[in-house]
Amino acid sequence: MSTKISFRDVHKSFPVKGGMFTALQGVSLDIADEEFVTVVGPSGCGKSTLLGMAAGLVEPTAGDVLVDGSPVTGPGPERGVIFQQYALFPWLTVRRNVEFGLKLTSLSAAECRHRAERAIDLVGLADFADALPKTLSGGMKQRCAIARAYAVDPQVLLMDEPFGALDALTRVQLQEQLLRTWSQERRTVMFITHDVDEAVFLARRVVVMAARPGRIHTIVDVGLPYPRTEEIRLSPEFGRIRNDVWHAVYHQDALTA
């Protein structure tokens, strides 16, 4: 399988009072086409900075970030970005919010409507297409944000803790919804999370990062079949992998991590 996203010896430093802060140091990682990768680690390990580089929102101090072998020089329509905050326009309906990103394309109005309706249906919001965001639950708002990203037909989805502000039940439901959508669309996904269970449930590989400076601590292969079900979440194998990731995140040796 070909490489979709590549980080090559990436470094990122920020000026702070009295010197420089190293957010990332020597990060190298390849993410395959159509692969679902989660990135987990302690606060301050540079997870969001790494995703921002793939999105073209953050420039590395050193090293290269490539998508399909070409350097990332800024944002692009082939990369959809979804943040924890929904960033919906409150005066627009679900359908109009999803159509908004398509206004910058050369598509006809009919094709924009078709793409928007397909994306809305994918995330299970067809019955709420004419609703305003203020009438939606937090989980529904996030599904609307995901539909807006899908409508532009990106090859890559970059997701920065998209379910972090949701309650536990809604979070689980959206994890399952996201995997159902991914199984139909098969885009490349890089998903940032603080939640170890979420990281294991979603991914083919879990990238565990260490902090100060931010770097890759270990990568855990998740040898669980798709579709991921509640039975898989409760299985001994899931528990074993979860424990491996948990210990890698929270029991890192400060001298050798």
Rank of each mutant, 00 (worst) to 15 (best):
F100Q: 02
T188L: 08
W182I: 06
F128D: 00
S108F: 15
A199K: 03
S106M: 09
L102P: 03
F191M: 02
L174T: 10
T135E: 12
A126D: 02
T170H: 06
G138Y: 14
Q173P: 02
R204Y: 02
A109G: 03
R205Q: 05
R180W: 15
F128M: 07
L178A: 03
A126Q: 13
Q142L: 10
F201G: 00
L202P: 05
A129T: 06
L136K: 01
C112E: 04
L125C: 08
L122E: 01
L166M: 11
T188C: 06
A168C: 04
F201Q: 04
F191E: 00
T188V: 11
F100T: 09
V172R: 14
G139K: 00
R171K: 08
S183N: 10
L158H: 07
S137H: 10
T105C: 01
L125W: 11
R96D: 15
L102N: 01
D121F: 13
F201C: 01
T181P: 08
F128C: 05
A109P: 12
D197E: 07
F100N: 03
R148K: 08
A165P: 13
D167H: 11
R180F: 15
C144F: 07
W182A: 04
L169I: 15
A168S: 12
V156D: 00
G124S: 05
A149I: 11
G164R: 05
A165G: 11
T188A: 07
P154A: 06
A199M: 04
K141T: 08
K134Q: 14
A145S: 12
L107W: 15
Q177R: 12
K141R: 13
C144E: 00
L158Q: 01
D121T: 13
C144L: 07
A168M: 11
W182Q: 04
S106Q: 11
N97V: 13
F100K: 00
N97M: 10
Q142T: 13
H114E: 00
L107P: 01
L107S: 02
D197V: 10
L102D: 00
W182K: 03
F128Q: 02
A145P: 05
A110C: 05
M140N: 01
M159W: 09
L166K: 09
V196W: 14
Q142E: 04
L132G: 02
V156C: 09
A145G: 02
D121Y: 13
V123M: 12
A116T: 02
G101N: 03
E111M: 09
I146A: 01
